[in-house]
Design a protein around this nucleic acid. Structure first.
Lengths: 228, 228
DNA sequence: GTAAAAACATGACAAATATCATATTTTTAA
DNA sequence: TTAAAAATATGATATTTGTCATGTTTTTAC
């Protein structure tokens, strides 16, 4: 069993506020899991009863709309925590999370985290700050969804993905998303997303390498996302 | 100066978790303000440096989009707190808040709240739960914005407003919003909102009394919001 | 009370987007 | 390896929505 107190990943999230003692206790009750590409971490309606700390890999967090379409609300990567919300409010998850590539995660049971939240103000302030930040992001996404058209949202999303995941040795955004995933992030029909990506390619704002995307003209994409 | 420990309003928000001592200290450092209809509580870019507890009245919380349009992200009413976020993350506000009618609010300075958050785990858990709930709502709004069309969003919003603000003696939704406000909630052009309201009126889903709106056919509105 | 401003309303049209159809390419599984 | 399935791509068309124009009603400020 790997030890939390020696794990680098926790430096990237609220768990960095825990004391050595708290981390040792956590090591003893956590479970490590390997989640294969396409498998679920959790589903809508499930009681999660703990949080996941992502050691490696990426998952998409989404929610079914009443229309029967899937909306991606977040992408979670190495160093992030998932499930904080369902932990604090005693409800079942309103979201589902599916691995986009093979993942290494640790699962920490609810009770353990609650204890730490109550006893360690640094930790709870950290969680609070993190949530405040998520909430601010959510507001930005709402404004973008409500006020920007599909082309603007696609440009914005591509820039955001490159900023978040960086580029690989080919110069492409270092995450593999299907065209459908991209459509489900920006909230449009898959065909529309494909069409606009083709348009951007034709205009040399980006290039396809295999199915991955390389951004070529950041300035133009920025302008588009801002409505110019 | 009114006393927090005797104020009913705090029962409706996280401040209910504070001890008598903490409330007495809060009474001594808070300031009461009257905010007239149309005046701002705070603006985008301002340091808020505290939270507002709403004793009476309603305000709309919005954000300018890069397109220059205003998106309403929340409506805050009696019993709610505003400004929690800017308090916890040390940044300027990303939102602005303007009174929709005359308001009575108390302003509690940041330092006081931070002290309580660090010393009273019940309180910080309460704030955390509240934020978790806001985050869940935000996800729902994102999904609605992304996946529903304007007519669905209007129906949804009307139902939501009636649930949140109730009806007055005329049977109308008990909040006065301009057509522009409604358009800015659902993220559409004012003309589109007006047109759809007229359509709903023609179909007897609702009636206008003056400029207020009375919902007549809840079932039909529910069906519309769900895409039937 | 009255003029000016703001809000509301509606038509005409243009632009954006979804949907359906169909073809091609890529991936998956036996 | 190969057939089937899934993903990508693009055209045609219908629907939704935004924009501009214009008129009416309501509210505001003097």
């Amino acid at each position: 069993m790997s030890k939390c107190e020696q794990c680098i990943v926790r430096q990237f999230n609220s768990l960095k506020h825990l004391s050595k003692d708290e981390l040792i206790r956590m090591s003893n009750c956590k479970t490590s899991k390997t989640i294969k590409k396409g498998e679920f971490l959790f589903n809508e309606g499930e009681h999660i009863n703990g949080i996941f700390c992502v050691k490696d890999g990426v998952c998409k967090v989404s929610k079914m709309s009443e229309n029967g379409r899937n909306q991606v609300v977040n992408l979670i990567k190495k160093g992030d925590l998932i499930g904080e919300r369902s932990l604090i409010s005693d409800e079942v998850s309103n979201l589902n999370a599916v691995a986009l590539n093979d993942m290494e995660v640790c699962f920490i049971p609810k009770d353990e985290i609650i204890k730490d939240l109550e006893k360690n103000p640094n930790f709870s302030m950290g969680v609070l700050k993190n949530m405040a930040n998520s909430l601010k992001n959510a507001d930005d996404i709402i404004v973008n969804m409500a006020q920007k058209n599909v082309k603007q949202r696609l440009a914005e999303t591509l820039l955001h993905l490159e900023a978040k995941f960086g580029v690989n040795e080919d110069g492409c955004i270092d995450i593999h998303l299907s065209r459908e995933d991209i459509a489900n992030i920006i909230g449009t029909a898959t065909e529309s997303a494909i069409r606009l990506l083709s348009e951007f390619k034709k205009k040399k704002y980006l290039a396809f390498k295999g199915k991955d995307i390389q951004l070529l003209d950041i300035d133009s994409l920025k302008n588009i996302s801002q409505g110019f």
